[in-house]
Design a protein around this nucleic acid. Sequence first.
DNA 1: TTGTACGCGTTATCAA
DNA 2: TTGATAACGCGTACAA
Lengths: 330, 330
Amino acid sequence: MHPSTVSRALSAEPGHLLRPETRARVAAAADRLDYRPSAIARSLRLQRTLTLGMLVPDIANTFLAGIIKGAEEAAHARGYSLVLCNTGDLAEREATYIRVLREREVDGVLVASTRMADATIADLRADGFPFVLVNRAAGGKDDLVVTVDNTAAAALVVDHLVALGHTRIAHVAGPRSTTTGSERAAGVAAAARRHGVDARIVEAETWSEAAGHRAARELFQVIQPIWGSRPTAVFGANDLIALGARRAATEARLSVPGDLALAGFNDTPEALLADLTTIHVAPEEMGARAAGLLIARLEGQPIADRRVVLPAALVVRGSTTGAALGRRIA
Amino acid sequence: MHPSTVSRALSAEPGHLLRPETRARVAAAADRLDYRPSAIARSLRLQRTLTLGMLVPDIANTFLAGIIKGAEEAAHARGYSLVLCNTGDLAEREATYIRVLREREVDGVLVASTRMADATIADLRADGFPFVLVNRAAGGKDDLVVTVDNTAAAALVVDHLVALGHTRIAHVAGPRSTTTGSERAAGVAAAARRHGVDARIVEAETWSEAAGHRAARELFQVIQPIWGSRPTAVFGANDLIALGARRAATEARLSVPGDLALAGFNDTPEALLADLTTIHVAPEEMGARAAGLLIARLEGQPIADRRVVLPAALVVRGSTTGAALGRRIA
DNA sequence: TTGTACGCGTTATCAA
DNA sequence: TTGATAACGCGTACAA
């Protein structure tokens, strides 16, 4: 049996002419010896690995886990594997991972990391290395992006709170160094201005419950005295931050929604548990779309939209009943 | 410049004798051309990919996400990458993924999948393919395993409930087809027998909140009438199942912990949110230990313990105050 | 329809 | 100390 014949027999390409008998003989032998063609050797020859890299700030974040899940599923369905990299949103680790992934010659990368140093991403762009940005804004106009309209979604929350009658709204923003953090904060500011209501913005250091807690505690202790009276509503830039704010509120003897309305962003399982009003985004679809976009790019398929903006809808739950305003709404 | 010289210059191996000048010249050129050695070609030559596969039933499960995070971190620290595979605990997908991973010649696999068909794992064993089982029991005596003592941990929960005075305890078990599910159920049964208390066990179809809800609803509707009086405590085989049970309880107009004590397993962030008594396990350490064990095996390092059993401690929270028994405990 | 020859980019070995 | 050579396992152009 000759290697090239085996290769042809096992190839999915219909272009190869060989008689059924030979093909069958190869299949039988392969089965008997449980022969596995080496993807490594194939990658070396074809100059593609059918592998994608994925940069994520925190796997343990349930929203990001959903994105990963969707991406992995979509990638696998198209014959691609996914190499997962947890960056902790640290620029240094991001750069290291990008280097590792490129040495391993992944065909492209999905970047869900928000704090990605512009330099690193600019390198990718300059080198023409295929990538898709997920759940974060683009640097360049030509980048492939799957995201939500953070500014508009944040405004939805403010609209909702204002409709309930709130006029003093605090926003615990995500890190300003992240694209999502600054976009959502901008959305809050713009909407508040439009409604003519008062909004104060404090910044959480990270996208975690703990950082939300710290920032909200500072809000209640520092901002509130300056503001004069306390906010009647707090909007956390993601669900975790909102939950941290809830803990700080509890410590300040403020009940939710009795004394304080509370809203988050992402509609993670935690938001449902905590009965939190939030912005619903479909993470698995986001991941799947991103992987699909990257693979389309890799395989030279036509790309309709370079920027996919997924819908983001307000989900109203018990944490914003208006009870903080004297039960305006039952 | 000659390829082998470049290889030697860029190699980390200290065994290579070459003069500093040459080394510097290579480094300079590599830098100028931003040359990246091909990990693919190296893998082909060295017959190892420095890549691990990881089989997980559900990335979106926060406990598993923690395991993945720990494993990825540990792997990366040792120079390995991690290919993530989400199996949904489906035997067919597990088999497919194993095939893909072996074709890609990953050096070994971490198996956190609980429902892994014995046939597939037996294949790995028979072929001498390196693997480590994480958070699930071993099939074979010689397998490498990182787990907790599920039986003992489940007994801890029963001990706690009995100490509070509960005598009718219901366990919403995980799927019997999973090793963790059956071990925890066995632990409950044994502990109940030892204490001479009544325990009923129902089975959730999956490790999800929804399945926990369904099973608990059945518990309240079917088992309870048979039992005569309702259980005063429900122990879910993981936190999600417990939260599903809580929802079913709420629907049955039972308050927690007023009418019903509730406990879970894993101490996920959700358990903290829901103030759930649970068994604390350190998922990141579990993942890290598993990756470490696998890499030690791959690199021929001595292995002290083939079976690592991590500590599992009871964390008592508000969901089991004894209020269900007329506030035996304040 | 099948066989032959070559190259993908490394690194180990041997020769210089 | 460095250069030359072979081999890892595959896919493909070309020859037979």
